[in-house]
Amino acid sequence: MKEAIAYYRVSTQRQGRSGLGLETQQLAVASYCQFHDYALLDEVIEVKSTRKQQSRLLEALEQCKLMNASLMVARLDRLGRDVEKIARLIKSDVEIIVTDNPHATRFTIHILAAVAEEQRQRISETTKDALAAARKRGVVLGKNGKRLAKQNKRAAQAFARQIFPLIQKLRSRGISTLRGIADELNLQGVPTFRGNAQWHASTVFALLHRLNK
Rank of each mutant, 00 (worst) to 15 (best):
G174P: 12
A114S: 14
K213S: 10
R56K: 13
K128A: 05
Q198L: 13
R14Y: 13
S124E: 13
R173G: 11
L187R: 15
K153E: 05
T177A: 00
R135W: 04
G174K: 11
L185G: 07
K2M: 05
Q157G: 07
T203H: 04
R120P: 08
Q54T: 10
K85L: 08
R210H: 03
V140D: 07
L57T: 09
V115G: 09
Y8H: 14
N212V: 11
V115T: 12
A87L: 06
R56Y: 14
Q25M: 06
A74E: 04
R75A: 11
F107T: 14
M1Q: 13
Q157W: 08
I90M: 09
C33L: 08
Y8C: 11
S176L: 04
P102F: 04
D37P: 03
D82W: 01
A160L: 01
A206C: 03
E43T: 15
R120N: 07
R210Q: 00
E23W: 11
I181T: 02
T24H: 08
P191T: 09
I97D: 00
A4Y: 12
A74S: 11
D129K: 13
F205H: 12
G180C: 08
R106D: 09
T177L: 03
R161P: 15
R154I: 07
V94P: 07
V98E: 14
A4F: 13
R78P: 02
Y8I: 08
S55Q: 12
A60F: 04
P165N: 06
R9T: 06
L79E: 09
L40D: 00
L170D: 03
Q121K: 12
V190H: 06
H209A: 07
A206Q: 05
N101V: 09
T203G: 09
D77Q: 02
A4P: 12
V98C: 10
L148H: 09
A39S: 09
K146Y: 11
